[in-house]
Design a protein around this nucleic acid. Sequence first.
DNA 1: ATGTAAATCGTAAATATTACGTTTTATAAT
DNA 2: ATTATAAAACGTAATATTTACGATTTACAT
Lengths: 138, 138
Amino acid sequence: MDTATALEMLKKKGYKYTGKREMMVHIFEREARYLSAKEMLEYMQQDYPSLSFDTVYRNLSLFEQYGIVEATEWSGEKKYRLACSANNHHHHLICTTCGRTTAIDLCPMNAILGEPKNFEITGHKFEIYGHCGECMKS
Amino acid sequence: MDTATALEMLKKKGYKYTGKREMMVHIFEREARYLSAKEMLEYMQQDYPSLSFDTVYRNLSLFEQYGIVEATEWSGEKKYRLACSANNHHHHLICTTCGRTTAIDLCPMNAILGEPKNFEITGHKFEIYGHCGECMKS
DNA sequence: ATGTAAATCGTAAATATTACGTTTTATAAT
DNA sequence: ATTATAAAACGTAATATTTACGATTTACAT
């Protein structure tokens, strides 16, 4: 999911192509890791000093809704990253310090045989947490 | 992990055996599901109308620290449940409406061959979310 | 150039969690 | 049983995260 594709897709749905949305996706591309809303706000404020919370949160939700970013939460915060371009479903090693990820080409759902009785599955999460090489140094 | 065992264990560590802690573990036993701090507070206030947030949060942290409860988070809230008495490591189907769980006797970490390079693993999460039979009715 | 709906701003409200000085209480020693 | 003391709880405030909303600005189709 690159910036142009993401924003053009939104435009086709009737949303506007704004500089702030463009920058948000750019930052996700550049950082290539999970970001909190606060981190995103801080990066954005370098270019838009008076940016409001509303804009960041609203756009994060919009991006999530249309599959531009994927979200998870740890340490009491929601975190967002650009949706993986890999077309196969997979999971991640996540550095809980910096948010960087490494893909795991394995989904435990494949090992779940049949449907559980009396339970409608809506989603699942498989995440391995830890510290990446960079963060271990410091 | 039953009430008596849990509280006696704490006592040996130098913590006091209080009616509030006893009731908290009782509620966890009775409910047998993930509870938010708020839900716990509300249950507790039936017997202790002036109970403060501090007590609930402090004791939840204490319980987590000593393995009496296990915690996770979804929908922007931390949730706690009595630590599973099963001595084998396992995971859960979780009803995101009521917090009830069903054990899955499977851990995807077994399929992760070897240690990832340049990454120190500190934990992992495998959870399947959905709606249980009870909650699907309503 | 203009109309209109969407986006953003500025700010406040809502929600969840943590913190802290004071008072109360469980517990062990006397 | 009384007392000392350290932990627990109270009452309340502070902090952090997320959401909400009326007013203003902007993108963009006409």
